[in-house]
Simulated assay, not measured.
Amino acid sequence: MFVGYARVSSTGQSLDIQNEALVNAGCEKVFAEKLSGRSMKDRIELANAIDFVREGDTLVVTRLDRLARSVGDLHRIIETLTEKKVAFRCLNQSGVDTDSSTGRLMLAILGAVASFENDIRLERQREGIEKAKLAGKYKGRKPTVDPDRVRELHDNGLGPAAIAREMGIGRASVYRALAA
């Protein structure tokens, strides 16, 4: 049995193209979700798909990055499928499967490339944030603690726990405000 797995990163994106491709490839059941692929955490439909497949089945995705964004996650998923004697196939990256040694090699190489691309994207994002900070356009989150009020309460004899209760903030925030 071919079992499909489709994923998009946000709720505003559509799963239609992936679902259609998986059904056209012969998938009798498709698991789909709208969730970031950065880690396997909270990916309930992926867990359901892996739990659903049985020996002799094939898990199918349209693109490798729909399954995993890190080499570690990819290898864990493939290892789990292999232990269950379940094959894996990727539609848009032909030759990426677990049926042959060449397919497994391609899987490892493309997994490493996907992880590399993710690292590059995060690096560019960090660089953009730094540039925006230097230009004064990125200021971060607005402060939620008024340090002057914390100092005022402290000067009036209240301890950190009492100040935290009074202001509805964490005690660690009180200590940071007093240290600043």
Rank of each mutant, 00 (worst) to 15 (best):
R124H: 12
R69Y: 13
D99K: 11
F88S: 04
K142L: 08
P143T: 05
E117N: 08
N118P: 00
I78M: 07
G140P: 09
L122R: 15
S14W: 11
R43T: 09
K29R: 15
V150M: 04
K41E: 14
E28N: 10
E45N: 03
R126Q: 09
V113S: 09
I109Y: 09
G12S: 15
A68N: 01
G37V: 08
T102R: 02
K137V: 04
G140Y: 09
L107R: 01
D148N: 12
K131A: 14
P147I: 03
G37P: 07
V30L: 09
N92H: 08
F52M: 06
A25C: 05
S10T: 14
K84G: 02
M40S: 14
K137N: 10
K85W: 06
A6V: 01
A21M: 11
V96T: 14
K29D: 08
A108Q: 07
N48F: 06
G56K: 12
T58A: 13
D65H: 10
R66N: 08
L91G: 02
L107E: 09
T62Q: 01
D73Y: 14
R63H: 11
L122H: 14
K137R: 14
R63W: 07
K133I: 00
D119Q: 10
V30R: 01
L35F: 12
K34G: 06
A47R: 10
A112Y: 04
L35E: 02
D148V: 03
E45S: 08
L105P: 05
V8I: 04
L35S: 00
G12K: 15
V96C: 10
A114C: 00
T144G: 13
S39D: 11
M106K: 06
T82A: 06
A32I: 01
I50H: 02
S9T: 11
I109C: 14
T144R: 15
N48W: 03
N118Y: 12
G12L: 03
D99L: 12
E83K: 10
S10V: 10
K84M: 06
A68G: 05
V96G: 06
T144N: 15
P143D: 05
I109T: 08
V23P: 04
G72S: 09
L46C: 05
A21K: 15
F88G: 07
G95Q: 15
V86T: 06
V71M: 14
R89K: 13
A49G: 01
A112H: 02
A21Y: 10
V61C: 10
R141G: 12
R63S: 08
N48V: 04
S101R: 01
I109M: 15
R121C: 00
K34W: 02
V113N: 13
L15S: 11
S101D: 07
L105R: 07
D148R: 04
I17F: 08
V71P: 03
F88V: 02
E28M: 05
K29T: 07
L91E: 11
K84F: 07
I120T: 03
Q125D: 00
